[in-house]
Write a protein that binds this DNA or RNA. Structure first.
Length: 254
DNA sequence: ATGGCGGCTCGCAGCCGA
């Protein structure tokens, strides 16, 4: 089972890239973030015609998440239960026995902002919910844009980013709290090249200069992690014209 | 250098992202 996550930064603009990528990579499950589409505008018919089941929860301009799957998606759930949130950031479904949780973690803007406090509260609510969810569904995968670079090696310039949003210690502690639930960072189950990132700023030629961060992740429950055979980042779509600023991340489960 | 780029909106300037 090939699992993937991709922050597409507007599904309307990126649909051609997504369709090409789906045809090439042939994943079984794809989690999308930042679709920026209200549900009636989701390109469900086009994707379904190509054999994709679509579950989605979107809004105008911001946020928006979706799960595409080859097999049927059951037990759909939207948002974090018990956490009131206008923003469409979480969708979960069970596909082939795997509880797939697709998350778009708030950005946080800067460490002294209300958005940062919202981010930390949001992550705490996510973690509390997943603690229960893992009891019900141990075969759980948490995929998405975490907006957290977990370690210095996930940052092109750790000194410049030290203490900044995406890299701050409270955010990294929140990431470790997710790991403490038994979730494993699939990417780090394998030897990886240095300078492996999933996001590069559109500005300053950041991609060409390899100035990125690894902030998109696939975390696997304790039953799934031992079955993971490969994990990687696909930077090819970032090289295209009008790319998303994020690259897709893939984990393959035997 | 708080800019840079890109996507969005009851757009034509300002927001948000990361």
């Amino acid at each position: 089972m090939k699992l993937a996550t991709w922050n597409v930064n507007s599904l309307k603009v990126r649909l051609p890239h997504l369709l090409d990528w789906l045809a090439r990579e042939q994943p079984d499950v794809v989690c999308l973030q930042e679709t920026k589409l209200e549900d009636p505008k989701f390109p469900a018919a086009e994707l379904e015609a190509l054999g994709w089941r679509c579950a989605y929860s979107g809004q105008k301009t911001y946020n928006g998440v979706a799960i595409l799957s080859r097999a049927p998606a059951a037990d759909l759930s939207l948002g974090i239960p018990g956490f009131a949130d206008e923003q469409k950031r979480v969708i979960a479904a069970t596909v082939d026995g795997v509880r797939v949780v697709c998350a778009y973690v708030p950005n946080g803007q800067s460490v002294d902002s209300d958005k940062y406090r919202y981010k930390l509260a949001w992550l705490e609510a996510l973690t509390a919910w997943l603690r229960d969810e893992l009891v019900r569904s141990p075969d759980l995968a948490l995929l998405g844009d975490y907006n957290i670079a977990p370690e210095d090696r996930d940052v092109h310039d750790p000194a410049a980013w030290k203490g900044q949003v995406l890299c701050s210690e409270p955010e990294r502690a929140a990431f470790r709290a997710l790991q403490a639930l038994g979730l494993k960072d699939s990417f780090r189950l394998f030897e990886q090249p240095e300078g492996a990132f999933t996001w590069w700023d559109y500005r300053m030629n950041a991609f060409k200069r390899r100035m990125g961060l690894r902030i998109d992740h696939i975390l696997l429950g304790e039953h799934l992690a031992p079955r993971c055979k490969a994990a990687r980042i696909d930077i090819e779509p970032r090289k295209l014209e009008r790319p998303s600023d994020h690259a897709p991340v893939i984990a393959e489960i035997a």
